[in-house]
């Protein structure tokens, strides 16, 4: 069972199109995996739509007639062609299924690179920024304790990891504001996550602090 979901506030902003495309991607992927949030979003859509379109402005009749004519005489737009969606990713000889929201942007997935601590990452290129990454932690891996100048959203695609606060499994969505520090780690099981950051990580403990000047190379 999925234990952690985006807040209703995030789902409303998602539905209204008021979040970064990159955060929309992470939330959309959670919704693919989570029938509870899929239902909530349906309700939110109905409500938001009603409110957005509940009253009209005065509309000049001549404008109506002109626009109606133009529209009904316009030629049909070309069917939207989309690249075939990415269905799975391969890493360390393992195959992971990719939910459709991520799959639709699969062509933006960059190459894997290794990060200290048995961690791999592959950036998803959303408008030239690399603030969404697939992050793979092998079993028994850890990311040094870190904090963020901004926020962090993590979605578990497969496997499980733990931090100081809890254990997280398939479909769990964790959103941390800038005041939180945590050090994610895996135990017996490996873990593939989709992670969004709005600012580079800041490592907070011991020798890992030395990584700070380079953290943007790893996670952004």
């Amino acid at each position: 069972m999925i234990k952690f979901h985006p807040t209703e506030e995030l789902l409303v902003k998602y539905t209204q199109g008021e979040l970064d495309a990159s955060l929309c991607l992470v939330i959309g992927t959670h919704i693919d995996m989570c029938p509870v949030c899929a239902n909530t979003v349906k309700d939110i859509e109905e409500q938001v739509a009603k409110r957005a379109l509940n009253s009209g402005s005065r509309f000049a009749n001549t404008d109506i007639d002109n626009m109606l004519e133009q529209i009904m005489n316009s030629s049909a737009p070309e069917a939207m062609l989309r690249e075939p969606a990415l269905k799975e990713v391969m890493l360390e000889g393992k195959q992971f299924k990719v939910p459709p929201s991520l799959g639709r942007l699969g062509s933006r997935l960059g190459p894997w690179s290794k990060v200290p601590g048995s961690v791999w990452r592959a950036p998803v290129d959303i408008e030239g920024q690399h603030n969404v990454n697939l992050i793979y932690m092998a079993a028994g891996a850890s990311v040094p304790e870190h904090t963020h100048r901004g926020s962090e959203a993590t979605l578990v695609l497969n496997g499980s990891f733990a931090d100081e606060f809890d254990n997280y499994g398939d479909g769990d969505f964790i959103y941390l504001g800038d005041s939180h520090r945590h050090s994610p780690q895996t135990a017996q099981e490996d873990c593939l996550t989709l992670a969004w950051l709005d600012a580079p990580l800041q490592f907070t403990s011991g020798i890992a602090r030395l990584l700070n000047p380079f953290s943007s190379l790893f996670f952004r």
Binding site: M1, I2, G17, A21, C24, L25, G28, D32, M33, C34, P35, V36, A38, A79, M80, R82, A85, K87, K97, P99, P100, S101, G103, R104, L105, R108, D125, I126, E127, G128, D170, G171
Partner: peptide, 30 residues
Amino acid sequence: RQNDVSAEDLWPVLSEEMSDSSEEDFALDQ
């Protein structure tokens, strides 16, 4: 900006070939 993600990638509303079948695999709880 170059190479923007389109809204249709994030929320497919008007894509003809939308199939629900690929989504079933992920809705385990369902």
